[in-house]
């Protein structure tokens, strides 16, 4: 038996909108730790890892570990029927081939049940080791989204370079080239607007902008985004989910032949 009650149901709606462009079908894993997902895009270039910790739910019952295969577009269709202020409860019985999403209005005057068919998904699970990164950039998520959108009208790839001067996002294409530099800016009274750069050593990596743009769909989950870079590793683009967990996107770099 599984029963997870999330008072801030809009978080689940936002999570779905953030990942459904990247991943079509995925297994949601439920354990004592929390509600999680790990999935790759169809090209195996990007990976998304989601964690919603058990403590973040008002009620969390998961009698035994359960993996539920869901089509994310279908799940998004169902969650779009929940109001933004609704409380969402996810329910499933052991061995069942369906999951139920229950939506309760804040005043408890409307209760809806949506039952969705589960599917068998044969997915690879990758071990992601804890790593030291050469540079970690924390910046406003809206700013990062704007930069990725702006650069993708010029080129297909972005070179992210971190030096002691700041973080530089560069692209070039048929019509020309562009460079955007963000300097460290620790605005004291508005921490959500800060740009903080922790650099062990300079790093410069190239990534496909199409994926970066897709990751920025998670911007509504968090005011800040953290970008972790190392020359030997995929970049990690992380959005914290208020008090509950995170959504992390990993993207393999493009390497010069």
């Amino acid at each position: 038996m599984l029963e997870l009650r999330l008072v801030q149901g809009s978080l689940l709606k936002k999570v779905l909108e953030a990942i459904r462009e990247l991943v079509t079908d995925a297994n949601f894993d439920c354990s004592g730790t929390g509600f999680s997902l790990q999935a790759m895009d169809s090209s195996h270039v990007a990976l998304v890892a989601l964690l919603l910790r058990a403590e973040g739910f008002e009620h969390y019952r998961c009698d035994r570990n359960l993996s539920m295969g869901m089509n994310l577009n279908n799940m998004a269709k169902m969650l779009r029927c929940a109001g933004n202020d609704d409380i969402i409860t996810i329910k499933a019985d052991d061995g069942s081939d369906t999951v139920t999403f229950m939506f309760e209005s804040p005043k408890q005057d409307k209760i809806a049940d949506f039952e969705m068919k589960l599917m068998d998904i044969d997915s690879e699970h990758l071990g992601i080791p804890d790593s030291e990164y050469q540079a970690i950039v924390r910046m406003p998520s809206a700013e990062f989204m704007r930069i990725c959108k702006d650069l993708s009208s010029i080129g297909d790839t972005v070179i992210i370079s971190v030096t002691k001067e700041g973080v530089k996002f560069s692209t070039s294409g048929e019509i020309g080239s562009a460079n955007i530099v963000c300097r460290q800016n620790q605005t004291v009274d508005k921490p959500e607007e800060a740009t903080v750069i922790e650099m062990q050593e300079p790093v410069s990596l190239t990534f496909a902008l199409r994926y970066m743009n897709s990751f920025t769909k998670a911007s509504s989950l968090s005011d800040q985004v953290t970008i972790s870079l190392s020359s030997e590793l995929p970049v990690v683009v992380e959005y914290k989910i208020a008090e509950m967990g995170y959504i992390r996107f990993y993207l393999a770099p493009k390497i010069e032949e």
């Binding site: 990976l47 690879e124 496909a208 995929p234 990993y250 032949e257």
Partner: peptide, 14 residues
């Protein structure tokens, strides 16, 4: 010329 690496070249299956 850049080649796109895959995530599976960095992280292994568990």
């Amino acid at each position: 010329q850049c080649i796109q690496k895959k995530i599976t070249e960095y992280f292994s299956k568990t």
